[in-house]
């Protein structure tokens, strides 16, 4: 029995650092029923996001190009490697940064586009699990990040804290949602959903907490650099006020 346990621990340690590469639920993993349920759950958010986008594009046609670039920017971001404190590498989700720069509504549509291209070009995630992944990465993550950012700013917290918390908690909640989606589709034999949720959370928490902290730190750095070097663009995006204060 001891040998068996050691072997399991060893394999887990071997696999765990790589899991960040593919935190999207992969193609074919969810039963058909859950694929459709998550598609339906994501749809209203994407539609609302799309309507907000098309309204603002009508007012300002330049915005279309910017949104195209924002999608590509998010895609490239997710392909970069963040150095992690634990020595393994991970990919930033860009959830927090995107939500702060472009707002949560635009992110639901951009996120869907990015996830589609990740499935088609990188084989991360998939077509059948597109709804589930959109729900966790393009809807829950950005909305949480955005409101944490606004909330901390309103409470009078400093910029770096607002950005850090927005990015890292948004990141974590994305993974909590993923665990939830996996657990509800595959409840444990004994203990059902709760037991299964705890199992998935246990594994993802170990790997994701350091990564969420890394992403939080990185996002603070990026926002600081952007405030220093591209004030005008941020003012145009309504991230900064005229006097250069974060909104």
């Amino acid at each position: 029995m001891k040998k068996w346990m050691l072997l399991t621990v060893f394999t887990l340690l071997l696999i765990a650092p790589q899991i960040a590469y593919s935190m999207h639920i992969m193609e074919g993993f969810l039963p058909l029923k859950w694929c459709i349920i998550w598609d339906i759950a994501s749809l209203p958010f994407v539609v609302v996001g799309f309507m907000t986008i098309s309204k603002s594009v009508k007012k300002n046609p330049k915005l279309k190009m910017l949104l195209g670039f924002a999608g590509a920017f998010a895609f490239v971001l997710s392909a970069l490697k963040i150095p992690s404190v634990t020595g393994s590498c991970s990919h930033p989700t860009g959830v927090g940064l995107g939500a702060i720069l472009f707002g949560p509504f635009a992110m639901s549509v951009l996120g869907l586009i990015v996830l589609l291209f990740q499935a088609l070009l990188l084989a991360h995630g998939g077509i059948t699990t597109l709804g589930a992944n959109t729900f966790s990465m393009a809807i829950v993550g950005p909305i949480v990040s955005y409101y944490i950012f606004k909330g901390v700013k309103k409470a009078g917290g400093p910029n770096w804290l607002a950005v850090f918390l927005a990015a890292s908690i948004g990141d974590l909640l994305t993974y909590v949602t993923t665990s939830f989606q996996l657990a509800i589709a595959f409840p444990a034999e004994v203990g059902g959903f709760t037991a299964s949720f705890l199992k998935f959370m246990g594994i993802f928490a170990v790997t994701q907490v350091p990564l969420a902290i890394s992403e939080g730190l990185l996002t603070v750095l990026v926002i600081n650099l952007l405030i220093a070097y591209s004030k005008e663009e941020l003012i145009e995006l309504n991230v900064l006020e005229k006097e250069g204060k974060l909104v």
Binding site: T8, I15, Y21, S22, M26
Partner: peptide
């Protein structure tokens, strides 16, 4: 490519708390 996700999720589903 998707193998690591697959392995870890399948292991999580196999190993259960049992009565």
């Amino acid at each position: 490519i998707p193998f690591s996700f697959l392995m870890i999720s399948v292991l999580t589903i196999i190993i259960n708390v049992i009565g």
